[in-house]
């Protein structure tokens, strides 16, 4: 059974744990650097980007997570978790800047306005198919370069068609929340990366 860590500092981590167990993975909560040992995969759930960033920094988790990702452990960031993975954060408020800086993508933070950026939409996710995606104060992928590739697009109200998912090597960024629409196939896709 594969062992997937879920960063459980802040955000919808409970639902991720539930979904991972549903698709047959062992899910463990990650709160400290010591919890990162022996993981086959890591999920960085969405929460409030500024809160997540300050907690990751306060616990000095940036380097340990970078090391884990550097060693090739597949990592999936969802919602605000995708902001944490990005190398560039655009339209940033004062506390929004690159946190882990791992993926060659530019992410528009919560520049979508408030409730307007929360909606449920169907989108075509390359490698998975049509999925129901919950965007909750969600960021958007404005640009991908290098070996990073956009896997799905969504029509963001007021912003137009922007990236909703990107893949770069062992890194998967989803600006939406697959844990809240119970998209098992998205987890299956991630687990196939883990098992590879």
């Amino acid at each position: 059974m594969v062992r997937v860590g879920v960063l459980s500092l802040q955000g919808s981590f409970l639902e991720h744990v539930e979904m991972l167990r549903e698709v047959g993975a062992e899910a463990v909560a990650v709160r400290r650097a010591a919890d990162l040992g022996g993981l086959d995969g890591l999920v960085v759930p969405g929460g409030e980007p500024t809160a997540l960033a300050s907690l990751v920094r306060a616990r000095g988790l940036e380097d340990s997570i970078r090391e884990l990702v550097g060693s090739g452990v597949p990592t999936m960031g969802t919602g605000a978790g995708s902001v944490l993975l990005a190398k560039r954060v655009v339209g940033a408020g004062r506390a929004e800047r690159a946190v882990l800086g791992l993926m060659d993508v530019a992410i528009v933070g919560s520049a979508l306005g408030r409730r307007a950026s929360s909606f449920v939409a169907e989108l075509d996710l390359e490698g998975v198919g049509r999925v129901r995606a919950a965007f909750l104060r969600s960021p958007a992928i404005a640009e991908a370069w290098g070996s990073a590739r956009v896997l799905a697009y969504a029509d963001y109200p007021g912003l137009g068609r922007l990236g909703a998912a990107a893949l770069q090597g062992s890194l998967l960024a989803l600006t939406f929340h697959p844990e809240l629409t119970r998209e098992r196939r998205v987890y299956g896709f991630f687990l196939s990366m883990v098992k590879r």
Binding site: S12, L14, G47, E48, L136
Partner: peptide, 9 residues
């Protein structure tokens, strides 16, 4: 869902 992202905060 929006509320669920506040957990732990």
């Amino acid at each position: 869902g929006v509320v669920s992202t506040l957990k732990g905060g």
